[in-house]
Nucleic acid binder design. Structure first.
Lengths: 189, 189
DNA sequence: ACGATTTCTTAAACTAGATTAAGTTTTTTG
DNA sequence: CAAAAAACTTAATCTAGTTTAAGAAATCGT
């Protein structure tokens, strides 16, 4: 399981065998069944999660009681409720396995420690957060410039395999509209 | 001008005098009049900008010819079209001074170099991008859960001073609605 | 394999916010 | 400081997407 993370890290930086050993000692790994929760609203988000295999989603329940999916993480992506994780405060979000999922976990109590003991990881996470921020800029641009139908068509064309992996209601929410409207869009084709 | 950046950097990491000198040699500073462009759509985004004083905005022009403001940067924030900046490809965005603005500039040709010569900066930018990603998660949550009026009320309460600094049409766009609708919201009070 | 649960579809009624257009106020600039 | 430009307001009309509700199809658990 850890080899998947090291393969990813090694795309960006070089870690010595010793550094890899230190890192493993500060990580945990776990597997979750489909629909299992890694974190629930009301609790403090204890960890940052790396997806080895599978898919996680970050969502909250809005004032009307409807689930709003705001982020997915597939293989080789990190996910967390950062506000809750960084400041160790109560979260409004759930993190749930959208498929059976293998993850590697950095708990908050070790988060500063990995950077103290392995300063090279600063670059790795600088690049991770840089990519996440870049992805956010693109996503906001789509949300602000495209209709619901355009976002769906565009996303389906860009990520056809991913669209097959998740229920339509999660995708509709992520793209900013209702499942009923997604059915209507699909019926138009 | 550089002291403002060093004060900010020093909140997160310690730089030696020597490292500060190296960094200065790789940066530029500049001032822009209100409405001046730091970067225009069609061009490749050449730099990452740190706001010392003033306010920048990132926006694009949508298919209907309407400006869509997707991001602001005030004092002590960095801004760029990351996709264009990182991959040195043509940009769809403009970066414009919303007020007379003093900036510090890292050009792309020096971006890798600052990390090679001053590895400690990896931590600084890891923290910068971490904060930007955290801010994005909060913003998406508001966009997905609040009405236009709620977003305006909430933003005005959280950042009353900032709201006074920018034209309403920029704020309306940033919050995801039209200037006409913002007028209507304001008239309701 | 089959009942239970989850997911998807359809369609009619509805609404938050957009559009259009004209007029007013504020700010900028020579 | 006056004219021009930029920003804001108002109101009527319109529409993309929501809501509600009920049924159909797919998937899951045992």
């Amino acid at each position: 399981m850890y080899p998947a993370l090291f393969a990813h890290i090694n795309k960006f930086i070089d870690l010595s065998t010793n550094e890899q050993e230190i890192l493993v000692s500060l990580l945990k790994s776990s597997t979750y069944k489909k629909k299992a929760f890694l974190h629930e609203a009301g609790a403090t988000c204890r960890a940052n999660y790396f997806v080895v295999k599978g898919c996680l989603r970050l969502y909250f329940i809005d004032i009307k009681g409807v689930e709003q999916t705001t982020q997915f993480a597939i293989e080789n992506w990190w996910i967390s409720d950062l506000t809750s994780f960084l400041f160790q405060q109560a979260s409004d979000f759930y993190i749930q396995a959208a498929e059976a999922t293998e993850v590697i976990i950095i708990e908050h109590r070790h988060y500063d420690e990995i950077f103290e003991k392995i300063p090279r990881l600063e670059k790795y996470f600088r690049l991770i957060f840089q990519k996440l921020h870049q992805a956010s800029q693109i996503r906001i641009k789509y949300l602000y410039s495209q209709t619901a139908e355009e976002r769906y068509t565009n996303f389906s064309t860009s990520f056809p395999a991913f669209v097959q992996r998740i229920p339509q209601y999660m995708l509709a929410s992520y793209l900013g509209f209702t499942p009923e409207f997604l059915s209507k869009i699909r019926a138009r084709k």
